[in-house]
Design a protein around this nucleic acid. Structure first.
Lengths: 254, 254
DNA sequence: CGCCTTGTTGAAAACACTCAACTAGAGTGG
DNA sequence: CCACTCTAGTTGAGTGTTTTCAACAAGGCG
């Protein structure tokens, strides 16, 4: 792990970590001023990492949970020598390892896929919140449960053909990025290599390349270096059998 | 859904649902008498279902969560016409859909794999518990987070070859069943068809058959109808690259 | 410039799937 | 009791998808 770069919040003109978090939570339920203050008091260091940096190593004891502010990062296993399987991808606003608050040791690595900025929330502070703010605790619980729903979809996705798998991943990333303002129905910037996409879909990078060509030739989606163009979202989603229910993007009534 | 059979607890000589639950929770942390009483008050109907019965349909509104008392059940998607992907398998003591307390609508079906007995816990009662018993709430949260860890492992497993996938699944089931008294290092009863195993590992039933033959011929594991014999656990686990850390079977220190 | 990563393509091999046929056993009804 | 039917398991042959190995192009960066 290369030493992280520390960024003092005053140095940036970007929004505060607490704003990113509250906005993410408010997509699920209202956050009171008191709850917002409690969360603000729990914000710890803000750090930036270059792509490839390992933020958390599997098995290591964790003292804080990581909120992703900018960029993308992945959670991954190593299957063999140089074979890796990415089991989750995260975008801005995601509480990447909230589950480490309960598990203490993670079963996977957390790795930057692009330049990332993260905010750390010490477990001691989060723990106080969960004990004193039951509604907030419930909201955080909900986040971990939605995370699990995405895991299930990723497992199910591996039952499909290569083209459907890749298309489904692109649909998911498009939707999740669009929700946080990082994309639109027409396309979105994506800083993933074809090998990254392969590790997310259980394919080799080479086969991803061939698959992307087929998708491009079918007019479904054009993936160039760094940008994904979607000519017809509905068409792509139909092909990918993408049903966004599992993202639970709308508020869930009590 | 065939009409469930209701079983009055007095009619059975099996242990009470509350005992099964408390034992499962105590594998993670101590449960006080007061907490036990709170849980006991939340126990609802007990039901039995035959194999194949759909207990919960994806998308339906849920009013209670399901504790599995006996048998095995699965959570599954439908990928196409008759293709299904099982994304989770559960054994006695598992709180199968605790996450429905927060999600309200599940993204998957819950289906009996064998004859099962389940206890229902109404959400209203569970919700009261989470609000008044923070330690218990944390324990329940932990259960959902471990469930997610198992999801991740299932996703990662699909990156391996057929033989490793099947062997890994058998290792997991052996360990989980052994923990609840349904197996040993030498073997365990398993009421799954080869097609079931295929749907859990992303393989066709036919290929599972060939794979089981190879595993048998290698002396790693013998899967007969209804029973799995394991000549050498360590050997099988090494082949399957099975590391049980992700089951978080030991108590996690605060 | 040389080196690295990423992307691209071809050919051959490995792997898993489909189709098909057949066995064994459990359960049913005559 | 036996024929019938259903499900689960087994095996072979052929097909299709994905991987592996190999080579090369394009671009970024020291």
């Amino acid at each position: 792990m290369t030493p992280p770069l520390y960024v003092r919040a005053e140095q940036t003109d970007a929004e505060e970590p607490i704003d990113t978090l509250v906005r993410a939570l408010e997509r699920r339920d209202d956050v009171s001023a008191r709850e917002r203050a409690a969360l603000a008091a729990a914000v710890g260091d803000v750090r930036v990492h270059p792509p490839g940096d390992v933020l958390i190593r599997a098995g290591a004891l964790t003292e804080s949970s990581t909120l992703l502010l900018e960029g993308m990062l992945s959670r991954q296993f190593y299957l063999g020598e140089d074979k890796r399987q990415i089991v989750a991808a995260h975008v801005a606003g995601d509480f990447v390892d909230l589950h480490s608050l309960l598990l203490k040791r993670l079963d996977h690595d957390v790795v930057a896929l692009s330049d990332v900025k993260v905010a750390l929330f010490p477990h001691a502070a989060l723990r106080r919140i969960t004990e004193k703010e039951p509604h907030l605790a419930r909201l955080l619980w909900l986040l971990t449960v939605i995370d699990a729903a995405v895991h299930r979809e990723w497992t199910g996705r591996l039952g499909h053909s290569a083209a459907v798998r890749v298309a489904h991943l692109l649909c998911e990333l498009q939707m999740r990025l669009t929700i946080v303002g990082g994309g639109s129905d027409q396309g979105f910037p994506l800083a993933l290599t074809q090998a990254d996409i392969g590790d997310m879909t259980g394919l080799t990078g080479i086969h991803v390349n061939r698959t992307l060509r087929k998708l491009r030739e079918s007019g479904l989606v054009i993936v160039r270096a760094g940008y994904v163009s979607v000519p017809d979202v509905a068409h792509l989603r139909a092909f990918a059998r993408f049903d966004p229910t599992y993202l639970y993007a709308e508020r869930i009534p009590r």
